[in-house]
């Protein structure tokens, strides 16, 4: 694997040199077309390699979900699917929990927290960029400061608090804290700062629009690429979050999908790896779908985000 990276790196430098060459000759050169082709060819090669590297773990995971536990224990990695899909699925559904409920819970938590995070982070960021208020800088510094606190140990306090007020087994305890997402606010603020055109806001004010309406109808659409990016990250994070739900949700009707997979893995004496991979695959599929839906805002191209003046 290290060799591959090296290869890519050398390729990269070659490409960079190629690019330089083009720049020197500018457009008029007759060879430009050919060179352009070579550069593009190089870029595609690198991209295809990177893409293959990215697909690789998914392929392994999906293939393993079709293999029996014994096959997986013999050779953890295989590129060739086997025939144990149904058995693995039966083991997964034969446990004391229901994967469909797990998917639903995961969906509720992830969708809820993603919506809250992106909306309120954008709102907070807008407050930090568009208005002048006394505590603005202090508040911004405070948000940055909060972001830097390591997560592992503040967890202890969070659990204690949740247990103390008896709010375990409530999905809302995993959703509502998402309103305050310092890193997302930071990103939105950094995004909005050079992008936001106060002229447009002023124009809307003159037209008689209220501040809240301006934010919802003018500013939010302007932030689409940022929102899409952060929504993806937030959704993925929330979906894959294991530790917090694991400790807070002890009722099997509230389990999320990752909790169920970790239960399968936790059967130390006879771990059914085939069904673990089946569970992992089922966990990741909805993520991929959501990601593909949201990614159109990133893929669509340049026209989306810009401010038309």
């Amino acid at each position: 694997m290290a060799d591959e990276v090296k290869e890519q790196n050398t390729e990269k430098t070659e490409l960079a040199e190629g690019k330089k060459a083009i720049r020197v000759n500018v457009v008029a050169d007759k060879n430009a077309g050919a060179k352009n082709f070579i550069v593009k060819f190089g870029i595609h090669t690198v991209c295809i390699l990177l893409a293959l590297l990215s697909i690789f773990p998914f392929w392994i995971m999906i293939v393993n979900s079709t293999r029996s536990t014994v096959q997986i224990q013999e050779h953890a990695l295989s590129l060739i699917p086997s025939t144990y899909v149904i058995q693995n699925f039966q083991i997964l559904t034969g446990k004391s929990f229901n994967p469909a409920v797990g998917l639903l819970n995961s969906l509720i938590i992830s969708t809820g927290s993603t919506l809250l995070t992106v909306y309120f982070s954008s709102l907070t960021a807008y407050a930090l960029v568009a208005y002048d208020w006394k505590l603005k800088n202090a508040f911004f510094k405070f948000i940055i400061g909060v972001m830097m606190i390591p997560a592992q140990v503040t967890m202890i306090g969070f659990y204690q608090a949740v247990y103390a007020v008896g709010m375990t087994n409530k999905l809302s305890m995993l959703i509502l804290p998402a309103i305050a997402a310092p890193a997302t606010v930071f990103f939105m603020r950094q995004y909005l700062y050079p992008t936001l055109s106060m002229e447009i806001v002023q124009a809307a004010r003159i037209d008689g629009a209220g501040e809240f309406r301006i934010f919802n109808t003018i500013v939010l659409p302007m932030m689409k690429p940022a929102i899409a990016t952060q929504a993806i990250f937030c959704f993925v994070n929330s979906w894959n979050n294991l530790f917090t739900p694991l400790v807070l949700l002890t009722d099997s009707k509230k389990y999320t999908m990752p909790i169920m997979v970790s239960l399968l893995r936790g059967d130390i004496y006879k771990t059914e790896y085939g069904s673990v991979y089946m569970g992992l695959t089922l966990t990741v599929l909805p993520l991929i779908i959501i990601y593909l839906i949201l990614s159109k805002y990133i893929i669509a191209g340049v026209a989306l985000g810009g401010v038309k003046s």
């Binding site: 309120f120 407050a127 568009a130 208005y131 603005k136 606010v185």
Partner: peptide, 8 residues
């Protein structure tokens, strides 16, 4: 500014 940062 204050109102919009209040939820956070």
């Amino acid at each position: 500014g204050y109102i919009f940062s209040l939820p956070f």
